[in-house]
């Protein structure tokens, strides 16, 4: 399970060098513009732009495909369900179910948009260290307490994942096999409970250590942000492209999805 999204942040690329604040703001606007798309031609333009963007980050393909696989598993069934369950007239019947082209079109639109947004998300957060991205969020007026909790959570996640693996190994060593019965559920319940207690007590110790070192609710960082002309230029380009995409979509040149998208 790839949890460290920032594993390749050290690669040098035009996106990695971008000031994280400008990057998050501009590409965030890009993401929300993609979410507004309701015509397939514009969605295709969006996915092409997202693909170019992810190429610019120089993230390895296997890393990107691994990320996309989660979305794929969820979205591929739509190609079967949507055409067969779309209300209204159907073109022909498959196994007694009406097949509607409009349903297939809607499924395609959903698929393209979802993949584009995931690609842009990877471009944003795969190209900077996680803590720097979070500090950038704080500079963008995201509440301090939320940023801090995100940083703590991200850090703890790796520690507790190790803890969970150790516990799981020891369960297996004692002959545990998961089945669909009450006993397995009870064991899982106790497993989660134990994980909670262990994690909780560990954090309690960490928190006391932090207090004794003078923690008063602020995290101090050595990171400073600097924006140059080129950062603004990149941001302006991304925002102009987003606006052009939205304008093209609303212009009425292309036929829009009839339902489920307005």
């Amino acid at each position: 399970m790839a949890l460290d999204i920032d594993r390749y942040h050290e690669v040098d690329s035009i996106i990695n060098r971008w000031d994280p604040r400008a990057k998050i703001a501009a590409l965030g606007i890009f993401i929300f513009s993609i979410a507004l798309m309701k015509t397939i031609p514009m969605a295709v333009i969006a996915i092409v732009m997202a693909a170019i963007l992810i190429r610019l980050t120089a993230l390895p393909w296997h890393f990107i495909f691994h990320g996309l696989s989660f979305v794929m598993i969820f979205l591929v069934p739509f190609f079967v369900i949507m055409p067969l369950s779309y209300p209204g007239e159907s073109a022909f019947t498959v196994l007694g179910l009406g097949f509607a082209w409009e349903g297939l079109r809607l499924a395609t639109l959903i698929f393209i948009k979802a993949v584009s947004i995931v690609l842009v998300t990877y471009a944003i957060f795969g190209s900077s260290r996680f803590d720097i991205s979070m500090l950038a969020l704080q500079h963008l007026k995201c509440p301090k307490v939320v940023v801090q909790m995100l940083l703590f959570t991200y850090r703890y996640t790796f520690v507790f994942l190790e803890e969970m693996r150790r516990m799981h190994t020891s369960m297996q060593a004692r002959g545990f096999v998961a089945r669909t019965n009450m006993q397995t559920m009870t064991i899982f319940g106790h497993f989660v409970g134990t994980l909670l207690i262990r994690s909780f007590e560990r954090t309690d110790r960490v928190f006391k250590a932090m207090l004794s070192k003078g923690y008063q609710g602020d995290l101090h960082s050595m990171v400073t942000f600097k924006s140059h002309g080129i950062d603004y230029a990149k941001a302006t380009a991304a925002i102009i492209l987003s606006l052009m995409m939205v304008a093209g979509d609303f212009s009425g040149v292309w036929s829009q999805a009839v339902q489920g998208w307005y």
Binding site: V145, Q148, T203, F207
Partner: peptide, 11 residues
Amino acid sequence: EVPKISVITSV
């Protein structure tokens, strides 16, 4: 409460 909430979130 910040660390406590974060722990539960991770778990």
